[in-house]
Structure formats: structure tokens, C-alpha cells
């Protein structure tokens, strides 16, 4: 019945792991600016639209 010790250990290790990940992401400044990344992620599409020649050639390549 001492399997409960193994289960406890596993669950706590997983929990602590996620907790450490959280602390590390705070340290790296991930939560300092919560606005700019939400805008930045939308940019890629705009750039492709702006330069249609590039887009066409990539499609062609795929067809070949």
C-alpha cells in the first residue's frame, strides 16, 4: 500500500516543476509587458500581404 508514497512524490514533483517554470517565466520578464506581444503576433500576415510576389513564388515551388 506504500504506492501512495510514489503517487504523492510524483504529484508533488510535477507540481513543483510547474511552479519553478512559473517563477522562471516571471523572472525572464514574460509578465512585464502583457500588451505588445498581443499586437506583435498579428504582424506576420500583414508583411506577406504587402509583398505578393514572394507569396506566389512559394506557392509555385510547392506545386513543383
Amino acid at each position: 500500500m506504500s504506492v501512495i508514497y510514489i503517487l504523492l512524490t510524483i504529484s508533488i514533483v510535477v507540481a513543483v516543476l510547474f511552479f519553478i517554470l512559473f517563477i522562471l517565466s516571471v523572472r525572464s520578464g514574460q509578465f512585464d509587458d502583457t500588451y505588445t506581444p498581443s499586437v506583435r503576433m498579428l504582424f506576420e500576415d500583414e508583411v506577406v500581404k504587402e509583398d505578393p510576389s514572394v507569396k506566389k513564388s512559394t506557392i509555385k515551388n510547392r506545386e513543383e
Binding site: F19, I23, V26, G29, F31, D32
Partner: peptide, 15 residues
Amino acid sequence: HRDRSIIYKLGIAGF
């Protein structure tokens, strides 16, 4: 330096 101690404290307490 940004003072992030409140987030750490809150994170630990919540955890």
C-alpha cells in the same frame, strides 16, 4: 530593477 516580489509571493502562496 522591476520589483516583482509581489508576484513571487502571490505565486508561492497560491501554489
